[in-house]
């Protein structure tokens, strides 16, 4: 067998098959969102293409549903949960990784293990706690509960990052008379900026994508997040609104896709770094 043929069989074709498998659902989302209803529910035309694209579904989604408030809610909750988690994680990771105080080793392992507790174990008792705190159906319920999976992840990621920074730089600053907080503020955190950025992206996308807690703790239509709102309010009995639904799935994915595309190199590096730890 000659080389190009071998390459086609062992590399190009399998890779193409993978890409079709992994990307087709996105294509299907897009085509459905742009297809007029008369094509959408017609078995005789080729479903993979439309010659008469329309923005009707997008218009319906934006003006006849609560999609825009859902987007705003999701954004507020994601930003709040990310800020809270990042602040707590940055302090904790610095302390565990750099101060080596009594108990820091055990603490690091404990925080890592909490990352493995899946939300399905927690959502029932958490619903009790949320209602006891008077946070039922309020965005604050999610801002306070999302850190349970964001903090362990961010601490783990930042710990790995702090470990790669040379200690000598901090020691030099200390010798030159900088206080501990000045060292953190002007030396360590700026050097750890790539790691902090990775945490930001991860925390934001994980919050944006969360479903179970948002489904359980929020109940009124205009309080919902995008993942929950689309799946509960637009899937209405027998009348499926596939056009607006797919338009919503597409638009709802845009913020995380954008955050990710800006930092794709970072993302992969951070993930692989975190796995190597």
């Amino acid at each position: 067998m000659n080389r190009p043929a071998a390459r086609l069989l062992t590399f190009q074709l399998p890779l193409a098959a993978f890409l079709v498998f992994l990307l087709f659902p996105f294509y299907w989302m897009l085509v459905t969102a742009l297809k007029p209803n008369r094509d959408l529910y017609n078995l005789t035309v080729n479903p993979l293409w439309t010659w008469t694209p329309t923005l009707d579904h997008v218009r319906r989604l934006l003006w006849d549903t609560h999609f825009l408030p859902w987007m705003r809610n999701t954004l507020v909750i994601s930003v709040g949960a990310t800020a809270l988690s990042l602040a707590a994680s940055l302090l904790a990771a610095y302390a565990i990784g750099r101060l080596r105080f009594r108990g820091s080793g055990v603490l690091g392992i404990t925080i890592f293990l909490t990352y493995l507790v899946p939300p399905v174990i927690l959502f029932i008792p958490l619903s009790r706690i949320v209602s006891a705190l008077g946070l039922w159906d309020r965005p604050a319920a999610l801002v306070l509960t999302y850190p349970t999976f964001l903090v362990p992840f961010c601490v783990w990621l930042l710990l790995g990052y702090f470990r790669t920074l040379p200690r000598e730089l901090e020691d030099c600053a200390r010798v030159d008379g900088a206080s501990r907080f000045q060292v953190m503020r002007y030396v360590t955190f700026p050097l750890a900026l790539p790691g902090i950025l990775s945490c930001l992206i991860f925390a934001f996308t994980l919050s944006w994508n969360e479903y179970l807690y948002a489904l359980v703790f929020l109940s009124s239509t205009d309080q919902k997040t995008v993942p929950v709102g689309l799946a509960t309010e637009l899937v209405t009995g027998d009348v499926f609104q596939w056009g607006p639904l797919m338009a919503g799935a597409l638009l709802g994915s845009v913020p995380v896709a954008v955050a990710y595309s800006f930092f794709v190199e970072h993302y992969v590096a951070a993930l692989t770094g975190a796995l190597k730890e």
Partner: peptide, 10 residues
Amino acid sequence: IVPTSLSALV
């Protein structure tokens, strides 16, 4: 990357 609930809808 994309929200699982949205790809689940697809």
